[in-house]
Design a protein around this nucleic acid. Structure first.
Length: 571
RNA sequence: GCGCCCGUAGCUCAGUUGGAUAGAGCGCCAGCUUGCGGAGCUGGAGGCCGUACGUUCGAGUCGUGCCGGGCGCACCA
């Protein structure tokens, strides 16, 4: 049990005793006071005062007087309508630091999800299109959700789902043949192939807008592709690999690690079979030549599941895929990390799955878009910022910065560190904001590494590592010596961390981990400037402070790990 | 037209699920390095929390109207 939980138990027991029968004190009635000067756990008495015709402030005063100190709580006081409990600092400090030291990477983990099996679908880019910063948000958010759920004891299947067929593929391939000769295609440098596909896609889209006829040609290509006709099939197979190879290396960089890869091309046929079955069962019907599911009775309108020309849609494949996943992994719950614009679509999909007697829990984890200052990202119009361009710009700037700081480092070392910082910076940028809010991506801001950024966190962690090295001695928990105000604050934050992990595991507001980490790092920076950790004249004190610094470093690392950010010993 | 989301400091965003004096980053101004890493720290200026009612002990948070913005609503993905 975590120290905070023990303290809470103590508080609840004491409150129960003081209040007597007729009122049930529960864990969620307790809060954290806004300022640690007030205390570490607060009990607002409003609820309790409701039945009685008495002033809440009086009741709080009375309660505070009735309760005496315990093992974890030393001071009980009232402030207005609140009863505040202050940690017995020595006990709590010692226990927290020891627990962090013992649990290390697992500090913060819980068993809430034990025995439960969850499948998270995320990282669903389309082949033949650019991988842009919007995709980064999706992949990185999904991975963070996976990480947090695993930390909470769930068995998680992380599933990527790649859009490797459909109209966009036909368009890209048509464009490739239209705008380039076979020779030119062959001569595209290996590392530019994926990029070229994206460019061609945009060019083709613009061409179609001006030439009606092209539309027909592309539709023809799509039908030939679905029928497996050459030379299109061969070209598809080859170019698909171009994109996939790129995705794999991007995922690896971003610490996005799916356990399974699904492809639209693999579920397309199954989807069409399922649609046929739905027609005979009467769940679906024909309408204007297309196949639809009528969800009007659920206020969800009409759900289109097959085009009138018999070719497939997202829905065709998603229906089949849900059952595929179920057959293979038997998850208790499926979570879909997809942008908010698909909300209605997912409601329709889930309602249809229920009609097909799929009974397990389905969740659409909606996040909002990444916009550019010029407006929405659009592969169609070419208004995009490619992931790799951002990364390269960041790395370039960070190489320069790192070189300045470490003139003795070898080039390889500099590049590697710069890259880690760049990726950490990008991931942090995508996760620091609430998933439900729009991110306006500003290149200039992305290239600033001060303040509420990934590098700030990495810097704090590296600094702690540096102190440890410099001290040249082992830490030793001596809680009695850690009585500084900031030490108390830091301990309090560490004690709260497990709660946070559990909360995010339930609600997926990943950004609060980033926020927690930043606030904690900031607090440590303040501490660092106010107090000399290494005190040459006082070894005991140094060891005690080192123990605290180590704990802070460890838990910061843990929080970064949940976000999928690699940390550095030096930077 | 119907539905969903948003409006908090000049800009970008938090705000403990209705609680204590509304916070942070950037930017701006003034400082800090012969002391563990200055990607840092300290201080300052900057707010009718879009607006009007309502719900109650208490509203940035909940409800309704209005204003302003974004997104979605059948063959795109």
């Amino acid at each position: 049990m975590y120290t905070k939980d023990s303290a809470i138990q103590e508080v609840i027991t004491a409150l129960k005793k003081a209040i007597g029968k007729g009122f049930e004190v529960t864990v969620d009635m307790l809060e954290t006071p806004p300022d640690s000067k007030l205390g570490d756990i607060a009990f607002p008495v409003f609820e309790l005062a409701k039945g009685k015709e008495r002033n809440p402030t009086e009741i709080a005063t009375e309660l505070a007087a009735k309760i005496g100190p315990g093992k974890y709580i030393t001071k009980i006081s009232s402030a207005g309508p609140y009863v505040n409990f202050t940690f017995a600092l020595t006990v709590v400090t010692e226990e927290v630091i020891k627990q962090v030291a013992k649990m290390k990477k697992t500090y913060g983990n819980s068993k809430t999800g034990e025995g439960k099996n969850v499948l998270v679908e995320y990282a669903q880019p389309n082949t033949h299109k650019e991988f842009h910063i919007g995709h980064v948000r999706n992949a990185v958010l999904g991975q963070a959700v996976v990480n947090v759920m695993e930390a909470n004891g769930y068995k998680v299947i992380a599933a990527s789902y790649i859009g490797d067929v459909g109209a966009h593929v036909a368009k890209a391939l048509w464009g490739l043949k239209k705008f380039m000769s076979d020779e030119e295609i062959k001569d595209i440098p290996k590392n530019e192939r994926a990029k070229k596909l994206g460019e061609i896609y945009t060019k083709a889209t613009q061409f179609v807008d001006e030439h009606e006829k092209a539309k027909l040609e592309i539709a023809e290509v799509q039908q030939k592709l679905e029928a497996g006709e050459e030379p299109w099939h061969k070209l598809w197979k080859e170019t698909r690999e171009w994109s996939l190879r790129e995705f794999k290396s991007i995922f690896e960089e971003l610490n996005v690690a799916p356990d399974v890869w699904y492809f639209e091309s693999e579920v397309e046929k199954k989807g069409k079979v399922l649609v046929k079955k739905m027609l005979t069962k009467g769940i679906a019907k024909k309408s204007e030549g297309a196949t639809v599911v009528d969800l009007a009775d659920e206020d969800l309108g009409i759900f289109l599941i097959l085009k009138s020309d018999g070719s497939s849609l997202y829905a065709t494949k998603d229906l089949a895929l849900a059952f595929e996943k179920d057959r293979k992994f038997d998850p208790d719950r499926q979570i879909f990390v997809v942008d908010v614009r698909q909300s209605l679509y997912f409601q329709q999909l889930f309602a249809t799955l229920r009609k097909l007697e799929y009974t397990k829990k389905l969740t659409h984890l909606a996040y909002d878009m990444v916009n550019l200052p010029e407006g929405a990202i659009s592969s169609r119009s070419g208004n995009i910022v490619r992931y790799e361009d951002v990364r390269d710009a960041m790395v370039l700037k960070l190489v320069e910065e790192t070189q300045k700081r470490h003139e003795d480092w070898k080039e390889k070392e500099v590049t590697e560190v710069a890259k880690t910082i760049a990726l950490g910076s990008m991931i942090f940028m995508m996760l620091r904001q609430d998933p439900k809010s729009i991110i306006t991506f500003d290149m200039e801001e992305a290239l600033s590494f001060e303040g509420f950024t990934g590098p700030y966190l990495l810097y704090t962690i590296a600094r702690i590592e540096s102190i440890k090295k410099k001290a040249g001695m082992k830490s030793k928990v001596e809680a009695k010596l850690l009585t500084n105000r900031l030490e108390h604050e830091l301990i309090r934050r560490l004690a709260n961390y497990p709660d946070l992990v559990q909360d995010v595991g339930a609600h997926f507001q990943v950004s609060s981990i980033a926020q927690w980490a930043f606030d904690t790092a900031k607090l440590f920076a303040e501490y660092y400037h106010e107090i000399q950790i290494i005190d040459e004249k006082n070894q005991e004190l140094t060891q005690a402070r080192l123990a605290l610094a180590e704990s802070v470093g460890q838990v910061l690392k843990n929080s970064m790990h949940l976000l999928g950010i690699d940390v550095l010993e030096e930077m």
